[in-house]
Design a binder for these strands. Structure first.
Lengths: 246, 246
DNA sequence: GCCGAAAATTGATTTGAGTCATGACAAGTG
DNA sequence: CACTTGTCATGACTCAAATCAATTTTCGGC
């Protein structure tokens, strides 16, 4: 299991590190900021100890304090339906931010759960506000990250409302692939961070259907799947399945 | 057809009006701002002539200039799949903002189409930025509106990924009902602003299924529907159908 | 390494939504 | 006004996904 390490620097464990050394700099909040601005931003970021699998980063209705950047690992966001059922609304990879939903009501409107061992950068919101009052580049970036999240959410809506199970699953795999690619990781060979159950929950399908569709895609040589290790054999076809709409 | 008038003031047509007189003030961007701040905000808002049904407010990839508040009428946002198929990602009622997705890339990532005659308030983004640099209340409100949109998008994801057609349709009706209620309009008797086709597109269902489910809900006396005029007869049941999840 | 629990796969069957086809109705057009 | 056009409703039929059930595989703890 060759887990890629997103630790920003090789410094002493727990020592302060800077976003300037982080390999996610082209994707994450400091995106296209000046070096000295990045350093000022880095100083307000808190590095937490990594969370084990299935831990809550925060829960719905907790008071909003911070936004978080996933540094390594993967998380899911969940909302609670009025009947008490948990519904997954998204998966977040390294460099993606969670907690942005908390700004409006000053408390989180969803919960965040780790899918594997995950470390995050915590960015206290009052400090973001204070700093961005003096730093237009940060203010602009915060707005951009929120806006980007809205675009992504819309993509997600179109993903989960696709008509067939095959389309939805193909579209999820394509989405993951592209996001790994943007992180300069292997786009056609990666590990699915979530369980089949989670995929089904997110996509509005039963586990059995997820399992069957994955098997079918495998028998057609579109993908190869060994437990969670995915290899995309025919990306073009996968994309066609995902997009080919009635 | 008693169309409720959202025109902010009774002034001369085209004369400058203020958000202070608008009945959407508790919902829209100026939410909980001071009166003098509201006046300053009002001055940068441009009132466009109303758009007829099926007109584009803007199209995907157009350069981002403004965000828009729906003043009266209804719009839908659509994104284009790679296969060229249009997918509806949301419906927006008076007091809701569209265009927030444009901030990140400086161009819109979706298109906005009117579902009926609609008027909007245009708010040029450079002016928002300039003004919010001097007006913390506005800066905060802009962030809150973006954050709120993210929460709503997550709700929408959970809505469209529900498992059965009945659940999805019930959930959409509940959502509309609550949003009309928040606008102090009749929550249990309103006109569906979108066609059956649009409902189906948004929910990932065929028109026929939409039609059949609506008929079924009607024959069970959960709703009464005459063309687009909807009366919710048993809201509790409708909510139960929407939320009752496996 | 072994055990029990959880997760995933696979099969058989049922059910619900899609597809195709037709007709009703309303709105718009010449 | 007749005629077209678009929207919606409904029926017959098919097919895909849910459900129910039984194994198999994987994984965490001892």
């Amino acid at each position: 299991m060759t887990q890629i390490n997103f630790r920003p620097a090789d410094g002493v464990k727990g020592a302060p590190t800077s976003c300037a050394n982080c390999r996610l700099i082209d994707i994450c909040l400091p995106l296209s900021m000046q070096l000295d601005d990045i350093d000022r931003l880095s100083r307000i970021i808190q590095h937490r100890r990594p969370l084990q699998k299935n831990q809550y980063l925060y829960r719905v209705n907790e008071p909003f304090r911070s936004i978080y950047a996933v540094r390594s690992g993967t998380v899911k966001t969940t909302i609670l339906s009025e009947s008490g059922h948990e519904k997954i609304t998204g998966f977040y990879l390294p460099g993606e931010l969670v907690g942005l939903d908390g700004i409006a009501e000053n408390r989180y409107t969803c919960s965040v759960v780790t899918l594997e061992t995950t470390s995050v950068c915590e960015i206290p919101f009052v400090q973001i506000e204070a700093l961005s009052a003096q730093m237009p580049s940060l203010q602009r970036n915060v707005l951009q990250m929120l806006s980007r999240e809205i675009s992504h959410d819309q993509q997600r809506i179109s993903l989960v409302s696709k008509s067939s199970a095959e389309q939805r699953i193909a579209a999820l795999l394509v989405s993951l692939s592209r996001r790994y690619e943007a992180r300069k990781l292997a786009a056609h060979e990666f590990s699915l961070p979530m369980s089949r159950t989670d995929m089904g929950n997110f996509l509005g399908l039963t586990v059995e259907t997820v399992s069957r569709v994955l098997s079918r895609l495998q028998s057609q040589n579109t993908i190869h799947l060994n437990r969670k290790e995915l290899r995309i054999l025919d990306f073009a076809l996968l994309l066609e399945i995902a997009e080919d709409s009635r």
